[in-house]
Design a protein around this nucleic acid. Structure first.
Lengths: 343, 343
DNA sequence: CTGAAAGCGCTTACAG
DNA sequence: CTGAAAGCGCTTACAG
C-alpha cells in the first residue's frame, strides 16, 4: 500500500508538506503543490481514512438516517439526497430505522462509532429531538418535519407545510362534493411531535372552517406508514364509518394499501369511494386508478438539505427552517359527488 | 472522551490487557476480564473505530451494494439483509448505484476508502465481476445472480434459478390457454451476464418445448427495472404485437408500469390482456388486480448471504453457489383463455 | 513556505 | 497471564 511517506520520498518533500497539499492548505508553494499532486496521481495514492479520522476526530462522510423502512416516500427522497451529495463530492452512508425507532438515539450511536461530519434525518419525532439532540455536536438537517420551535443549535429543518397541505386536501374533497370524509394514517398519540398530527390538525381546521362535522373517533383511524398498515386501517374505517364517500390517507404508501382494502370490500374507486393520498411518490402515478395526492417537492427538499448542510459544514452560519412548496395532483381516484346529500 | 488509557488506569491493568479484553482474546484471567469489563461499562467506553482500523487495516462494517435504485425488489431484500446483519451484531453501510453502473468498480473504490470487511452485492453484472473482481480481497456474496462459472475466490452467490422460474411462468401462461405471449424487461445485450438474459433464455426454452413459436424481435422488448421503464416497454410491445394476450414482465417493478400502460391503451387486466411479473415484491399483493408473479424467497436469500459471509469472515471455508426455492403466485392478473385459437 | 516531531487511540509481537 | 513498547498513517502546532 502506498502511504504519505512514499509520496514524500518520491516527491522530495516532507510528509508535512504532502499532507498540506492533500488538505488544500494555503501555505504551500505552487511548485511543491504541482510536484506532489503529480506524484500522488502517478502512484494512485489515497489517504487512509482511518488515519485521517484518528487525528481529525471527524470522519469524512455524511450520515443519512431514514425513519421508516416501509414508507416509500423516503425512497425517492433518499435517492435525491444521495444524488445531490454525490454531485458535491460528498460520501454518504445510510441507516434505515423502524418507523417508531428513536432516531436521535441511533444518531448518537453512529456519531460515536463512525463520527460522520453531519446528519440528514429523513423523518423524525420531535420528542426525541427535544430530549436528546443536544448530544449531537455536528451540523444536521431534519427533513419532513420542522424543529423551528425547538431552537436547537446546529439543526436546520425543511418540510412541506403539512398543516396547510392537509387543509387543501379537505377543501378539495369538499369542493368535489364530499361531506363524509374518513382519514387514515399517523400515530394514535396526539403529542404534536409527528407529521401525522400536523396533517390531522390541518384537516380538523379545514373541517371547522367549512362547517362540516368531523368525529375523530369515528372518522379517523391511525396507521403505520406501510401498505399493510393502510390496508388494515382502511378496513377498520370502512367498518365503523360505512357512510363515508372519501378517504384521505396521509401518506401514499398508506393509500395504496387502502385502495386494495376498498377493492376487497367490493367497492370501486372512485365510483363508490374516493381516495386521496399524500406525498406524490412515483407509484401514485402508476396506480389504477391514478392516485390523487399532495406532491411534496422532493427535489427541493433534498437540495435545500444538502446545500444547507454543506454550507454550514464550512462556514459559521445560522440554521434555517423553511417550508417547501407543494402541489395537489388530481389523479383519477376522486369522484365528483352529484348530489351533495345534506347541505 | 474516554479512551483505552483511562480504562487501563481505572482498572489497574495495562492498556494491552484492556485491549485483549475488548477483542475477546483468550489469554486473559477471568479476574482481569471481569474488572475491566466493569470499568468499561461504568465509563460507557467505546473503542475508537478509526484507531482500531488503523492497526487492523480492515474496518468493522459490511458494505452492501445495491445495483438499481428503482428496482423495488431490492428494497425488500435489502431490508432483510440489514435485519439479519444487525441480528448478528454487524454494522452495515449501504451504497445505491444506478442499474447499469459498474458495481465492482464502486466496490473497489469503497474498499480503498472505507475498508469494509466484506461485501454483499444486490444484483450484479457478471462481466464486471469477471474483469475486476480479483482486486477485491475481502469475502463477498452476490445475490440474484450466480458466479459459479467464474470461479472467483472469495465470492459466493445465491439466487433464484431464473431460467427454471421463467420457464414455469411460460408453462403456466400456456396452461391458461395463452399462445401469443409478450415479454418485457432486461437489457438488450445478450451477453449472459445479466439476470434478464437468464430469464429470457428460460422462456425461449419453454416455448420450444411447448412447440409455441416465439419471435424475439416482435414479442420481446427490453426495459430498465423501473416502473417508467415498464410503462414505455409495454407500450412499444403492444404497438408492435397487438395480438398478444399475455405479458410476462421479468420484474414486478416493470410489471406495475406495464399495467398502467395497458390501462392507458383502454385495455382491461386480465380480461383483455393478462400480465404476470417476477419477484413477489410487497406491492404486487396490493395491485388492482393482484399481480401474478414468481415469488423469490428474499428471506432465504438474505439469510444465506449473511450466514455465508459471516462464516467465511471467521473461518477458512469454501465459497458456495446455491439456488433458493421460488413459488409461482397466481394473483388475479392472468385470465383463462376459453378458446385456444390456433391449436 | 517547509521540515522535524509529537501525538491521535489502538493492536500486537516480544519478553517475562 | 501481563506489561512495555513499537508502530499503524496521518495532522498540526512549532520553529525556522
Amino acid at each position: 500500500m502506498v502511504t504519505i511517506k512514499d509520496i514524500a520520498e518520491l516527491s522530495g518533500y516532507s510528509i508535512g508538506t504532502v499532507s498540506r497539499v492533500i488538505n488544500n492548505h494555503p501555505d504551500v508553494s505552487q511548485k511543491a503543490r504541482d510536484k506532489i499532486d503529480q506524484v500522488i496521481r502517478e502512484q494512485n495514492f489515497h489517504p487512509n481514512s482511518n488515519a485521517r479520522g484518528l487525528k481529525q476526530v471527524l470522519n469524512t462522510s455524511i450520515s443519512i438516517i431514514v425513519r421508516g423502512f416501509h414508507n416509500m416516500f423516503f425512497e425517492g427522497l433518499l435517492e435525491q439526497v444521495q444524488a445531490d451529495l454525490r454531485e458535491n463530492g460528498e460520501e454518504a452512508e445510510v441507516t434505515f430505522l423502524d418507523e417508531n425507532a428513536d432516531e436521535v438515539q441511533a444518531a448518537l450511536e453512529i456519531l460515536r462509532v463512525r463520527k460522520p461530519k453531519g446528519f440528514i434525518f429523513l423523518g423524525g419525532n420531535l420528542e426525541y429531538f427535544r430530549a436528546e439532540y443536544p448530544g449531537i455536536d455536528v451540523p444536521s438537517v431534519l427533513l419532513t418535519n420542522t424543529t423551528e420551535e425547538l431552537k436547537l443549535p446546529g439543526l436546520s429543518s425543511f418540510t412541506t407545510d403539512d398543516e396547510r397541505a392537509a387543509g387543501e386536501v379537505i377543501r378539495y374533497l369538499v369542493r368535489m362534493g364530499h361531506r363524509k370524509i374518513g382519514i387514515i394514517g399517523g400515530s394514535q398519540s396526539r403529542t404534536g411531535s409527528q407529521v401525522g398530527y400536523r396533517r390531522l390538525m390541518g384537516c380538523e381546521k379545514a373541517f371547522q372552517e367549512s362547517g362540516i362535522p368531523f368525529d375523530l373517533k369515528k372518522q379517523y383511524e391511525p396507521s403505520l406508514f406501510s401498505m399493510q398498515g393502510g390496508y388494515d386501517a382502511a378496513r377498520k374505517l370502512l367498518d365503523k364509518a360505512p357512510d363515508i364517500t372519501a378517504i384521505f390517507a396521509i401518506g401514499d404508501t398508506i393509500a395504496i394499501g387502502a385502495m386494495r382494502a376498498i377493492r376487497d370490500q367490493g367497492l370501486c374507486i372512485p365510483e363508490d369511494i374516493s381516495i386521496i393520498g399524500y406525498d406524490g411518490i412515483e407509484e401514485s402515478r402508476f396506480m389504477i386508478p391514478r392516485l390523487a395526492t399532495i406532491r411534496q417537492d422532493t427535489e427541493a427538499l433534498a437540495m435545500r438539505a444538502v446545500e444547507d448542510l454543506l454550507f454550514r459544514l464550512n462556514y459559521r452560519h445560522p440554521v434555517r427552517h423553511e417550508y417547501v412548496p407543494f402541489e395537489l395532483v388530481e389523479g383519477e381516484s376522486v369522484s365528483i359527488m352529484d348530489e351533495s346529500p345534506e347541505i
